[in-house]
């Protein structure tokens, strides 16, 4: 739950639409309900797309959270 929370918090800082997909399912990256329903476990491959004025910054911030900081979990 905490990673989803952190992800939603970061995504919500941006104005762009942010979508996350896991296989065929695509959800709103700003909705904690949809993100938790996506139920990605460790090792799942997620595709993140952003569309809007600050799309690039958004993607960079989310990459930082997921790949570099690894949700501050390690």
């Amino acid at each position: 739950m905490r990673p989803a929370m952190l992800f939603v918090d970061v995504a919500s800082r941006f104005r762009s639409d942010i979508k996350v997909s896991n296989g065929d399912t695509e959800v709103d990256g700003k909705s904690i309900m949809q993100m938790t329903m996506l139920a990605a476990t460790v090792g799942a491959k997620l595709k993140i797309t952003a569309d809007g004025v600050d799309a690039e910054e958004a993607l960079e911030a989310l990459r930082e959270l997921v790949e570099v900081r690894q949700f501050d979990e390690s």
Partner: peptide
Amino acid sequence: KDIFAVHMRFLRDRSLRKK
């Protein structure tokens, strides 16, 4: 506190309310 934080985000989730 963490649990409350999660609850808060759910309560503020527009797509949940919409659903």
